[in-house]
């Protein structure tokens, strides 16, 4: 008998297989089949949901409450919708200190204000001690559709823009657990990506926030659906110093580390420079860079390739298993 392993939830291939093999056959319909972060419903409404189970609850640069708002907000933004309303469902473990709960609620409230969304419905459940871990949160989000991603319009020469450094959230959470005798100034990048909304009106072709699975998984899933390979340049990819250090020290590849305030934007070739300028103008986009392009000089259709710093070329795979530090 097979059992659910942590791996299924890691955002890797097992999860992709689960969705393709179990979810789609069970529920498949034209809206679900798009498998986008948020869906556009009839009537100009966009809809999404996400659950949050981060451990520890609080970490430098964020906490579970802030994450629960921004994660859902960002799913709407990158799908072409202006976030408006959220639901908030709390699953609490018996024995949780009320101070902790208060902090989480305050954080949800502040994040919702910052992202200009209102919490309009919700639910609270308590489970026995040991049957949950302190606080789990689910939020659903509703937004106003402003544009549809146009995958079919992506052409040779279109540019891949990354809105900032990779992996800061992943590392901040890992270090907040106090393991590995490692400390640094890293902070989670957890933030709302509302500043990307205007790009839709200016002709953005596709966006995706870089969360679980990291940049490699996001771009791999895009490449799979295109008629051209995507080539990214390792030396163009912005990394913060703490992430660079931890990735070398612990042997964790930053291309697979999660962010909570970064996105990939596919810009039409002619507009890439303008897009980059606009993104960089915002404080959250200051480190943005064109990291690659849709092209057909190397690779085959559907492939994601990396030009390494040293001048080599290799394929990038999606995340296949949970990130574990290695020593040997």
């Amino acid at each position: 008998m097979t059992k659910v392993s942590l791996e299924l939830g890691s955002g890797g291939r097992l999860m992709r297989d689960f969705i393709a093999g179990k979810i789609l056959p069970s529920f498949g319909n034209p809206i679900l089949d798009e498998l986008s972060d948020a869906v556009h419903l009839p009537g100009g409404v966009a809809f999404t949901t996400d659950s949050y189970v981060v451990d520890p609850l609080f970490f430098p640069g964020g906490d579970i409450g802030r994450l629960a708002v921004n994660g859902t907000v960002n799913d709407l933004v990158v799908s072409g919708a202006e976030p408006r309303f959220l639901s908030l469902a709390l699953i609490l473990e018996e024995g949780l200190e009320t101070d902790v709960l208060d902090r989480v609620i305050r954080s949800v409230s502040a994040a919702a204000r910052a992202a200009n969304v209102r919490i309009v419905t919700g639910d609270t459940k308590v489970v026995r001690r040991g049957q949950g871990d302190k606080v789990y949160i689910n939020t659903a989000g509703v937004g106003r559709s402003v544009a549809r991603p146009r995958l079919g319009k992506i052409r040779r020469g279109d540019k891949v823009i990354l809105t900032g450094t990779l992996g800061d959230h992943s590392l901040a959470v890992m270090l907040a657990r106090g393991d590995f005798g490692l400390s640094s100034s890293v902070r989670s990048d957890c933030a709302p990506l509302l500043f990307l909304l205007p790009l839709w009106k200016k002709g953005a072709l596709w966006m995706r926030d870089v969360t679980r699975g990291g940049l490699a998984t996001v771009l791999f899933e895009l490449a799979e659906r295109l008629h051209y390979p995507i080539l990214v340049e390792e030396d163009k990819i912005p990394l913060s110093k703490p992430v660079r250090a931890a990735s070398e020290l612990l042997g964790i590849d930053p291309f697979y580390m999660a962010c909570e305030g970064k996105a990939v934007v596919i810009a039409p070739a002619a507009k890439a420079a303008e897009f980059l300028r606009l993104i960089r103008r915002h404080p959250l986009g200051r480190k943005a860079a064109v990291i690659g392009e849709v092209q057909d000089r190397v690779g085959r259709p559907g492939e994601l390739l990396l030009r390494t710093e040293a001048g080599g070329l290799r394929l990038l795979e999606p995340l296949t298993s949970e990130l574990l530090p290695r020593i040997c």
Binding site: E7, G12, R13, L14, G251, R297, V298, G299, R300, E303, L305, G312, L313, R314, L315, E317, T320, S321, R326, C328
Partner: peptide, 30 residues
Amino acid sequence: RPDSPLGPCMVSYEGACLIHFKYGRERRAR
């Protein structure tokens, strides 16, 4: 495969099988 390994060489980050699987199908620039 890395997500359903049958031997340690497909498990370890230093395992030849995992490395060949992840990085091995190289492409040469035309």
